[in-house]
Design a protein around this nucleic acid. Structure first.
Length: 633
RNA sequence: GCCAACGUAGCACAGCUGGUAGUGCGUCGGAUUUGUAAUCCGACGGUCGGGGGUUCGAGUCCCUCCGUUGGCUCCA
């Protein structure tokens, strides 16, 4: 693809004038794929400009899974991608040499005189008098630093995947551009494999599985982004909640319950209202007051103003649980001996997410956080943050979720939006770093990712489409204790301000389950399976035995479903397979006579004639162990 | 919220350039009583997302609203 020259990425069009070390970059490395993708983005731009002479290329980088290029042009549809792709392949076949040309400022501007976007980039990124480089293939060229592959022949195996839109420079107030996404591989086989993988991934999409496996339902008439947990899905959620509940008890948490709404004044104090009004459901106003105002001819905007200024009060669906928990803390005088005080609640919150953002279970308007707030002394921050992320790790380990990254969100040094004393920030950031480092997994620091009230540690996972979702989070907060004037009596007899830690190891039950459905591709470990045994009878004369087996399993708390219909056993298996039960239990004459069961696992493997009592106890043990997958077949 | 595409029975889909809807699975009924990935026959089921318009006539064209999908923006 290109080469490392003295450790720097260069392409074949670089002239080497001194002695140096040269190391090839191949497509099997991340760097090589990156170059391949970037070069294909150029090829795409070349094809688009040939087919749409008015299109102006803007930027087109390589990304994790492929590449995209943004064009200022008339909008196009997916159907238009085919001819563009054809053109790209034609250009690839013509095997243009990709040349690197160094130009001075004037020349550079002249080359892009008709493209205001490129000129803007030159203005911003290219220093006065330094000039820059363009890459040329055939008659087409692009402003670019490279490196690139030596010729377009290397770019044969590409496919355009989707078209969408983007704002110029990610700024909502600026022009909307046409963005075309694509993928590329070095060989035909690799492309085929990648496309196949993408197809397979689609089958795991939690939105599809959620419907097929009857886990949840979203109903237009209920509302966008509002999840209805159907019986099978509810089982999974409940099991997860029990699981985490056990660990909370072990770690010294206290369970609390708080209502779904609170007065506007509460949120005025916490700072959520009216500052974050746009991302909240509109406030609820008391009936009598509403009637009085409407009799007085109060308009909507007047009402809204009166709420903002605090002239009238109302209630809000809670966007977070913390103010309620703060009030529990403040309900008693606290001493340093009470700390850390850890208040936990599966608290449902409501946020007005933008309609275009809502997606399945992963981005919703109402969700239940496995929330907790820890009230700690400043010295306890490090230890408690550590306890929190250990909890996250226990959960991720148990569920076999290894594909996540840890992000330590620090403040942006150039911003003034943060509240609190910089020295305390430093200390809290250090505590977060140390905690993350102790995890033994890769983690990264990201400036500007902190909340305005404190640094945080996030656990981020990808869905099947490659989108990243924040799940677990641990956040240090100096702000709320201040706003609510929280205190505790120290050993010195004086009053001190506690620090709060917000934490949610799953993040939200909705998002977490969505990700989990994809993680397991609907094939949950036995303890999480909505139904653990599907009992299938060979014929109707086995119904009685099937019922007695089901009863014994249920006695042991095992979730069972019986199919004693008159389908053939082959048909029953076919039907039930689609629900991915942990086990199918087949019952016929032999089993009924000997008080045994025959099992069929997900792979299709079978074990015949296991004594019923043995099966029950083994299955019970497997569930109690929370084994990562069914092992009895 | 913005851009684009899409929206036909519970699900997956067909319906060409406008002439009042089809298939498969599921469901229900009947026959069959079956040993590990579909037994046979039959029936029910949709005013084609909602509303408005063009037209003699609209699932098919136009407008609008709602929703879905892919992005963008946002995410206390």
């Amino acid at each position: 693809m290109a080469a490392l020259v003295d450790g720097q990425e260069k392409d074949m069009s670089h002239e080497i004038k001194h002695s140096c070390t040269v190391e090839g970059i191949k497509a099997d490395s991340a760097a090589g794929m990156y170059i391949l993708r970037h070069s294909t983005a150029h090829l795409l731009a070349q094809a688009v400009t040939e087919l749409y002479p008015n299109a102006k290329p803007t930027i087109g980088p390589a990304i994790d899974r492929g590449f995209y290029y943004d064009f200022a042009m008339e909008s196009i549809t997916e159907a238009d991608l085919k001819p563009i792709q054809k053109k790209m392949q034609e250009l690839a076949r013509r095997n243009f040499t990709i040349e690197r040309l160094e130009l001075d400022d004037r020349d550079l501007r002249q080359h892009f005189a008709t493209n205001s976007y490129k000129l803007e980039i030159i203005d911003d990124k290219v220093g006065e008098g330094t000039g820059s480089t363009i890459y040329k293939q055939g008659d087409w060229y692009d402003l670019c630093l490279g490196p690139h592959v030596p010729n377009t022949g290397k770019l044969m195996f590409c496919k355009l995947t989707s078209v969408s839109s983007a704002y110029w420079r990610g700024d909502q107030s600026r022009e909307q551009l046409v963005r075309i996404y694509g993928i590329v591989e070095p060989t035909k086989d690799a492309l085929k494999q990648t496309l196949h993988r993408m197809e397979e991934a689609k089958k795991r999409d939690h939105r599809k599985l959620g419907r097929d496996l009857q886990l949840f339902h979203i109903d237009e008439e209920v509302g966008q982004g509002l999840i209805l947990w159907t019986p099978r899905g509810a089982v999974i959620r409940q099991e997860l909640q029990h699981f985490i509940g056990e660990h909370l008890t072990r770690q010294g948490y206290s369970q609390v319950f708080t209502p779904h709404i609170g007065k506007l004044d509460l949120y005025r104090k916490s700072g959520h209202f009216p500052y974050y009004q746009d991302s909240q459901y509109p406030p609820l106003v008391e009936k009598d007051l509403m009637k009085k105002l409407s009799d007085e001819g109060c308009s909507c905007s007047e009402l809204s103003n009166m709420m903002k200024t605090g002239d009238i009060d109302g209630y809000m669906l809670k966007p977070m649980n913390c103010p309620h928990h703060v009030k529990i803390y403040a309900s008693q005088a606290r001493s340093y001996r009470d700390l850390p005080l850890r208040l936990a609640e599966f608290g449902t919150v409501y946020r007005w997410e933008q309609s275009g953002e809502i997606s399945g279970m992963t981005r919703v308007r109402g969700f239940t956080q496995d929330d907790a707030h820890l009230f700690v002394t400043e010295d306890q921050i490090g230890q408690e943050v550590l306890g929190c992320i250990e909890l996250v790790q226990i959960i991720f380990d148990k569920l076999g979720m290894k594909d996540y990254r840890v992000r330590v969100g620090l403040r942006d040094p150039d911003s003034s939006k943060y509240v609190g004393d910089p020295a305390r920030w430093d200390k809290a950031e250090q505590a977060c770093r140390a905690a993350a480092a102790s995890l033994g997994v890769d983690w990264s620091e990201e400036e500007g990712e902190a909340a305005f009230y404190g640094p945080k540690i996030d656990f981020v996972v990808k869905d099947v489409i490659g989108r990243e979702w924040q799940l677990g989070t641990v956040q240090v907060d100096y702000n709320l204790p201040e706003r609510f004037d929280l205190s505790y009596k120290g050993s010195d007899g004086g009053l001190h301000r506690p620090v709060m830690i917000h934490r949610a190891p799953f993040g939200s039950m909705e998002r977490f389950c969505g990700v989990l459905i994809e993680h397991f591709a609907g094939r949950f470990p036995t303890w999480l399976s909505p139904t653990q045994c599907h009992i299938l009878t060979i014929s109707q004369k086995h119904t009685e035995y099937a019922n007695s087996v089901a009863d014994q399993l249920k006695e042991h708390g095992i979730r069972v479903e019986i199919d004693d219909g008159d389908d053939t056993i082959g048909k029953k298996i076919r039907t039930h397979r689609k629900l991915h039960p942990a086990y199918m239990v087949i019952l016929g004459d032999g089993e009924a006579e000997n008080n045994t069961v025959s099992l069929r696992g997900r792979s299709g493997d079978q074990v015949a004639d296991i004594p019923l009592t043995e099966f029950v106890s083994n299955l019970r043990a497997e569930i109690d162990d929370k084994s990562s997958k069914p092992n009895l077949v």
